[in-house]
Amino acid sequence: MSELSELYQQVILDHNKKPRNFRKIESPTHTAEGHNPLCGDQLTIYLDLVNDEVKDVSFEGSGCAISKASASMMTQAVKGKSKQQVEDLFKGFHLMVTDDSETPEELGNLRIFEGVREFPVRVKCATLPWHTLHAAINKEELVSTE
């Protein structure tokens, strides 16, 4: 597990450089803006939720490598999932970066962010996209992680 505790791994650097689903959805069913005043990270999540299933999801904004990679990988992880599955992933992800316990397999390649727990000041960077997605699903329009 030791390499997982490294923060800036190739996968993260790659998603930072070439973020996936980095675009706007023209008429999303849900959208929310996230802001981390500490770093100046700022992003918008666009979501197309049809029959409680994520048909499409994307994001735009600017931020540090951790928040950008986290947003990018999040969009990949939640596409096609049900609302309930997304909420479960959100809980699992949050627990993984804030808690020392064993990380559940279900998080799949999101487990790459496990190392963030070693960097308390960066936890908010990793969770900002998830909080924002959560807010979008629950129709809150603005979140802030300070």
Binding site: C39, C64, F119
Partner: peptide, 19 residues
Amino acid sequence: HPHDIGTILDQEGIAVRAG
């Protein structure tokens, strides 16, 4: 991003402010 700079510098024992 400056926060990434700050974190990596910190790994090398260098304290700067990023923000």
